[in-house]
Computed example of a mutant assay.
Amino acid sequence: MRKAIAIAVLVLLAACGPQLGPLERGETGRVVRAYAGDTLELDSGLRVFLAEMDAPRGEDAYAAQAQGELEALALHREVLLAYGGARRWVPRPREGQTEVPDEAAIAHVFVKSEGGRWFWLQHEMVSRGAAFVRPRHDNHARSAELIALEAQARQAERGLWGRREYSALSARAAAAQAIAADISCLRGAAPYRIVDAEVADARVFDRRASLRLQGAPAETPFSVVVFGESFARWDGPALASLTGARIRVRGPLGVFRDEPQLCLDHSSQLEVLPVGQSR
């Protein structure tokens, strides 16, 4: 009897469709193509960027495996899009360009398996270590859940987390990579990295904050910075209180006035780590 009831409950849940939580229901379709490990194309022609995560691409280490995981999970399957923030990415026309590419959706994706079970694609990609979490100020509705999943995958060294290239950087290594990139952190090409370090000095000003991290060379001090609209809408831990705290931050590396830095766009990009935790 209990077994029959359990089966009935499972069937009912499957019939009810995916559990969206706070997300808003969007379009449906069938996946006809996967680009890298974080982009899909539906049979309608709509391109879909997977919200709140990113994956290796191009010549990056683990890029082929990430795309393989995405294809295995979603290709030729029915999906439902759901939204928790900005819904569309609109490309800017390049100089001399006569045709502008179509806009793309930025969505959470729920996939219907062959057995009729719905699963959250971002959950699977991050859990397998095939993608990393990348929240933004206009898309962070489920980043806390994804960051917790990412921490488990990192601890188990699953997927990309078993590769040296994706280890969390020290302040010294982050400073070196920022200088090598030699680009503004506001540029799309800026390298996106995770850094674990202790805050040597936290300073908050009228319109910006700077967290200088321990471990970088004295001649190239490395800081985590928050400025502009990101500073104005900050809703995370009090930045001025972080001196001496060990933090994990994720964001683009850049250089400003010859000083290397990592820029934060939203408070979900900063974690205050328990004493002794550094993975």
Rank of each mutant, 00 (worst) to 15 (best):
A200T: 14
H137A: 12
E24F: 15
Y35F: 09
L146M: 07
A86P: 05
E71K: 10
V249S: 01
R279F: 13
A66V: 00
R163Y: 11
A232R: 15
H137Y: 14
V255R: 09
E41G: 07
Q122K: 03
A218G: 06
G58E: 09
L186R: 13
H123M: 03
S44Y: 11
P260Q: 03
E78A: 08
V272T: 12
Q67R: 15
D102L: 15
R136A: 15
V48F: 11
T28F: 10
V272L: 02
P221H: 04
L211D: 06
L262I: 15
V31P: 04
V199D: 05
V224H: 00
R47Q: 10
I194E: 04
R87Y: 06
E27N: 09
E69D: 14
P91K: 01
E165S: 13
R246Q: 07
S113E: 07
G21C: 02
E27V: 13
R257T: 10
A51M: 02
E198W: 09
V224F: 04
K112N: 02
V32D: 04
R250I: 00
A174E: 03
A104R: 12
G236T: 03
D54P: 07
A173F: 10
P252K: 10
G159F: 07
Y166L: 00
D102F: 14
L239W: 00
A238F: 12
A180V: 09
Y62F: 13
N139G: 12
R117G: 11
L242K: 10
A141G: 13
A173W: 03
E198T: 15
G26V: 00
A168W: 14
P56R: 00
P91N: 02
F110R: 04
T28K: 13
A168G: 10
W120T: 04
E78D: 06
H140I: 03
R134H: 05
V204K: 05
V225A: 01
R30C: 06
V275P: 14
A64Q: 08
T243W: 05
S267W: 09
G68Y: 06
A209G: 15
A144D: 08
R158N: 08
I106W: 03
R246I: 10
R187N: 12
L70I: 02
A14Y: 11
H76F: 15
L12G: 12
A209I: 06
R33V: 04
A197P: 03
W89I: 13
S44L: 03
E229M: 06
G84T: 08
A6S: 14
G116D: 09
R25Q: 13
L149H: 01
Q155A: 15
Q65R: 11
L40S: 02
G244T: 05
Q97P: 01
L10N: 07
P56T: 01
L146T: 04
S267H: 05
L75R: 02
V100F: 09
D196S: 07
H108L: 07
I247Q: 01
G84P: 10
E157A: 08
V195W: 06
T98Q: 06
R128G: 07
